[in-house]
Design a protein around this nucleic acid. Structure first.
Lengths: 154, 154
DNA sequence: CCAAATAGGACTAAACTAGTCCCCTTTAAC
DNA sequence: GTTAAAGGGGACTAGTTTAGTCCTATTTGG
């Protein structure tokens, strides 16, 4: 179910390594060696992350990458957005795709709401959290009006 | 980001229609006509949902489908599981796929935790909720130990 | 100038998705 | 009992997406 791509997963590994490197710039080759991910792939990831503003880069010899901000201030949602683009949980909730069933559907908006909710949750998870293994499993639950409470109105 | 497949989305529409039909059995053709989704697709969806135990079916002439339980007792997580299979948020957190980076990674477990957390949330959303349009957007947040709180320990 | 790097994007093979189709079994109605 | 309506179970295919590689700039330290 609900899947993020392998590249996003790798991206997290790469970012976690940069978090570990602190303020020093690390080259793509260094990161590749340290993480065991192929250099071309690491390179591609870092380029994308740089364009998204999550990492800073220096070109030329002795160049490299480092986190643009503290690991505690980079969110899981940003990482996903950077590497997967602004894809939505359902196709018909994406900007312009106009689903034929709209009139009949009545459902899309619910998935959209779930989508928004999940995004909010991911906004609360930092790269620092992701990089820290063995932390206790967080618990989501609904706040405010619980969506699972039946309303008697039609 | 975090996407469910179009088929799962359709599946929800189909289930929502069955929820509306109540205890009566509706044929795949009826559902297709009512939802505007192609008959072969509806048929495929209903077969899958029947195998997953979310709908009951009667074969033969005058046969059809209806929800196996009350719409309030079918969860979004079940629908996703039935239609997308037990896929996990990251590849390496799936049962047997053995990621080479495991030793280096340290990250997988975090996504896994997020995965579990999202699943829990989806367990709290019923088909009845999904079928009801225009409900207020639910709000997720972390309960217990907030994962975004930095710990000073290394 | 040269070598080490990043920037950007083209390209390809593999995997997955969505959708269709076919043949079988079950069952109600005539 | 025959027929037609309906579900059961897959096989198959076109299209899309993903993952990964590679090539050609451009930048910059020595």
């Amino acid at each position: 179910m609900l899947r993020i791509s392998k590249l996003t997963d790798y991206g997290t590994v790469v970012l976690a390594h940069l978090a570990h490197s602190g303020a020093a710039y690390a080259s793509a080759s260094e990161v590749a060696a340290a993480t065991g991910i192929g250099l071309p792939t690491v390179s591609k990831l870092l380029k994308t992350l740089a364009r998204a503003g999550l990492v800073n880069s220096i070109r030329g010899a002795q160049g490299g990458y480092r986190l643009a901000r503290d690991a505690g201030r980079i969110t899981a949602a940003e990482v996903i957005d950077a590497l997967e683009g602004p894809v939505s949980i359902t196709e018909c909730s994406a900007s312009d795709s106009h689903c034929d069933l709209e009139a009949v559907c009545n459902v899309g908006s619910a998935w959209q709401r779930i989508n928004v909710a999940i995004r909010r949750a991911l906004d609360d998870i930092s790269l620092a959290d992701l990089a820290r293994a063995n932390a206790p499993t967080p618990r989501f639950h609904f706040a405010g009006t619980p969506v699972s409470v039946e309303r008697t109105e039609k």
